[in-house]
Design a protein around this nucleic acid. Structure first.
Lengths: 204, 204
DNA sequence: TGGTCGAGTTGGCACTGTCAAGTTTGCAGT
DNA sequence: ACTGCAAACTTGACAGTGCCAACTCGACCA
C-alpha cells in the first residue's frame, strides 16, 4: 500500500510544486528543485508523473477538485439565485487566494494536458456548479437567458479578475487586504451580472 | 543610426519572440532560439534587453501599445455609449487574435516587469480608452455607476474570455471560426454588461 | 528460495540563461 | 588621416535544467 520510501511521494511532489510556484511563479519552478524539496532524486518524479507536464496536469486537476468542492458546498441548499451566484463567485476567489500555486498553473493552459480525464471531470464539476446556478437565474429572473453564454460570462469575469488582482492598488501589500478588496469587487461583479441577466431580453 | 550588422536587431528579436511564443507558448520559448532565429549569437539579446525578462517586458509593452492604438481608433468619434463599449470589446479580441504571441506574455504577469515605464503608459492608455467609454455609459445610462469598478469588470471579463477561448468547442480547429465564435460571445458579453450597468442602482 | 516488478538512484546528454572577456565596427576629435 | 573610444556583437565558460538509459534496492508472490 504505502510506497516504500516515502509515505506518499506523488502527494509530496504536488505539495512541493504548488509551494514553489506559489512563491516564484510558474517560470521560477523546476522539476529538480521540486524533487530536492521532497527529498528524493531528480529522476524520481518521472516515475509517477512521466514528465513535468504530467506533474502540472496533476496539480491543475487537484486545484479544480478543490474549486469544485468549495463551489458545490458553498451553494448547497441555497435557493435564491442571486445569493447563489454571489456564493459561486466568493468560493472561486477564496480558492484562488488559498491555493495560488494551483491557480497559477490552472490559468496557464499550455502548461498542462487539458484533455486529462481526472482534470476534465473536476473542471466540469466546477463549471456545472456555476451553470446550475445560472439555470436558477434563468428560472427566477429571465426565461430567455442563454445559460451557456451567461455562465461563460461569469467564469471569464472572475477568472480575469484573479489574473488582474495582483495589480490592484491595495495600499498595503498584505495578502489579506488584497483579498478583501478582491472579494468586494466580486460582489459588485455579481450585482452587475445579475442585473444584466435579468434585463437582457434575447441575444439575436 | 542603423545598428551596424542588423538593420534593427531589437525589433527583429521582438518579432522572433512573438513568433516562437505564438507557436509554442511561453513555456516552449528560449532566448537562445530567438537569437538563432534572428541570426545573431546567443548573447546578443542581452545587449539590448538585459535579460529574458527585459525582452518579454518589451514584447508586452509592444502588445499594449497595439491594443491601445486599436481601441482608441475603434471608439474614435463614436458617441453612443453602448456601441462604443461593443467596439472596445471587439478591438480587444481582434488584437488578442492577431497577436497571440504578445497576449500570451501580457496575460502572464510574472513574466515581465509590470512597473516598466513604457509598458505602464501604454497599458494606462488602453485602460483609459475603456474607462472613458464607461464614463459615457455613466453619463448616458446610470449616473450612480462606479466607473472604476465597471471598467475593471469589463476588462476582467474580456481578458478572462481570451484565456478561455482556446477551450471553446469550435467544431473545426480553424483559427477563423474560433475568432468569430469569440467575437459573438464578446457581443453578448457587452449586452450583459450594458444592461447590468444601466440597472444596478448603487453599490453599497 | 527464487523471480519479478515497482520505486528510486546515478550518470550522462543536449539545452538553457547569464556572466566575463574578447573582437569587430563606426565615428568623433584633433 | 590617424587615434581613441564606445557601441554592437561574438566566444567561451558555468551552473542549472528536463529527460533518458542503466542500475540498485526492497517487497511480494509462486
Amino acid at each position: 500500500m504505502t510506497t516504500y520510501h516515502h509515505g506518499d511521494l506523488p502527494a509530496a511532489l504536488r505539495a512541493a510544486t504548488v509551494e514553489l510556484i506559489g512563491e516564484k511563479g510558474t517560470s521560477g519552478f523546476s522539476l529538480r528543485q521540486v524533487a530536492r524539496q521532497a527529498g528524493v532524486s531528480h529522476a524520481a518524479p518521472a516515475h509517477h508523473f512521466g514528465d513535468v507536464r504530467g506533474l502540472l496536469t496533476a496539480v491543475a486537476a487537484e486545484g479544480y477538485e478543490r474549486l469544485a468542492d468549495e463551489m458545490s458546498s458553498a451553494i448547497d441548499g441555497v435557493d435564491d439565485a442571486k445569493e447563489r451566484l454571489r456564493r459561486c463567485g466568493q468560493a472561486y476567489i477564496r480558492i484562488a487566494f488559498e491555493y495560488p500555486g494551483h491557480f497559477a498553473v490552472m490559468l496557464q493552459r499550455d502548461l498542462f494536458d487539458t484533455e486529462d480525464e481526472a482534470l476534465l471531470t473536476a473542471s466540469v464539476r466546477a463549471y456545472e456548479a456555476l451553470s446550475g446556478t445560472i439555470e436558477m437565474v434563468r428560472d427566477q429572473l429571465n426565461p430567455n437567458l442563454d445559460v451557456d453564454q451567461a455562465a461563460t460570462f461569469c467564469w471569464s469575469a472572475v477568472q480575469g479578475l484573479v489574473i488582474l488582482s495582483p495589480n490592484l492598488d491595495s495600499v498595503a501589500y498584505h495578502q489579506d487586504t488584497k483579498f478583501t478588496e478582491t472579494a468586494e469587487l466580486v460582489d459588485s461583479f455579481c450585482d452587475f451580472m445579475i442585473n444584466g441577466f435579468a434585463n437582457t431580453p434575447t441575444t439575436p
